[in-house]
Design a protein around this nucleic acid. Sequence first.
DNA 1: ACCTGAACACCGTTCAAGT
DNA 2: ACCTGAACACCGTTCAAGT
Lengths: 173, 173
Amino acid sequence: MSGVDGLSLRELARDAGVSHGAPRRHFKDKRALLDALAVEGFTRLDAVLARANGEGGRFADRLSDVAIAYVRFATGHPALLELMFSSKHELDASAELKTAANACFARLEDLVRSGQASGELAAADLQQVGTIVFASLQGITALVNTEMAGDADLDALTVSTVRALLYGLAPRS
Amino acid sequence: MSGVDGLSLRELARDAGVSHGAPRRHFKDKRALLDALAVEGFTRLDAVLARANGEGGRFADRLSDVAIAYVRFATGHPALLELMFSSKHELDASAELKTAANACFARLEDLVRSGQASGELAAADLQQVGTIVFASLQGITALVNTEMAGDADLDALTVSTVRALLYGLAPRS
DNA sequence: ACCTGAACACCGTTCAAGT
DNA sequence: ACCTGAACACCGTTCAAGT
C-alpha cells in the first residue's frame, strides 16, 4: 500500500472513537481530507523555507541553506510530500491548495531572481533556471524517498548538487 | 486514486473474462503482479538507454542523448515509473527486480565513469556524481509527472539541465 | 494444472434516523 | 448542527470444489 492510499477514513474514525460516517460532516470526500493535509504541508514547508532564507550573505550560501531545508523537510516527511504533489496536480485541486503551493515555488523563484540580479547567476530564463534548480532538489528527494540514496550524507549530497549546478561538473580550467 | 492503487485485480480479471480468483494461479499477490510489471519496465528502460548511448562521440552529447531518452521514457509512462520505483524500494523486493533496476543504474554509472576517464568530467567521487546526475533526471521526471513543468519543451529542459550540470549556472568568466 | 464461486474482512460513500 | 448505523458497491485474499 503506497503512502497516500494507506490512509483509511474508517480507521481514522475508529482511532478517533467515532462512527465511520462522522468524518463526512467535516470533509465531503476522502480527497477533501487529503487536500486539507496537503495545504497544511505546503504551509509548513513555506515557513521552513522562509526561515532558511537568510536575507544577507552570498547567493550561493543562501541557495545552499534553502536547498538543505527543502530536502530535509521533503525527506523527513515522505508520505506528506507525496501527498502534497499528487494532490496538487489533480485536475480540480482547490484554489487554497494551489495558493499554498505557489507560495513555496515563488519563494524559490525569488531567490533565483536575486542571484541573477547580483550577477552570481548568469543571465538566463528565470522560469527555466528555477525549474532546473527545483528539479534537482525534487530529484534528491525522490532518490532518498525511494531509498536509492542513503540519507546519512543527505546535507552533503544537497550541497554537492548545488555546487554542481552553480559551477558545473566539467573541469573549469 | 494514485496510479499504482488504481489497478484492481478484480477489474483485471473481469477485463480478461475470467473469475476474480483466477489471477491467483499466476501471481501469488497483488504485489507479485506489480513486481512483474516493474521488472518489465526496468527491462524496457534498459533497452531504451542502451539504444540511446552511442559509443562514439563527445561525452556531453552522449549524456544528453541518454538523458533525453530517460526523461522521455519516464514522462511517457508516469504510472509505470511510479510503480517501478515504489516497488523497488519495498523491503522484500524480489532479486529479479533488484537486478533489472541495477542494470539501468549501472548503465548511467558507466557513462559517468567514461566521462571522468576522458577528462570531460572533473575527477570526483563516482557514486556521488552518478547520484547527482540521476537525481536531476528523476527531478525533471517528477516535475513533469506532477504537471509542474510542461512537457512541450521537455527535451529542451533536459538539455538545459545537462548543460547546467556540466558547465554551471554561475557566470564562467 | 487451472479455474470457479462463495466467504471473509476490509474499503469509501450515501442516507434516513436519531440527539 | 452533529453523530449513528445500516446499506451499497467495491476491494484483496482464501479455500473447497469442480474440470
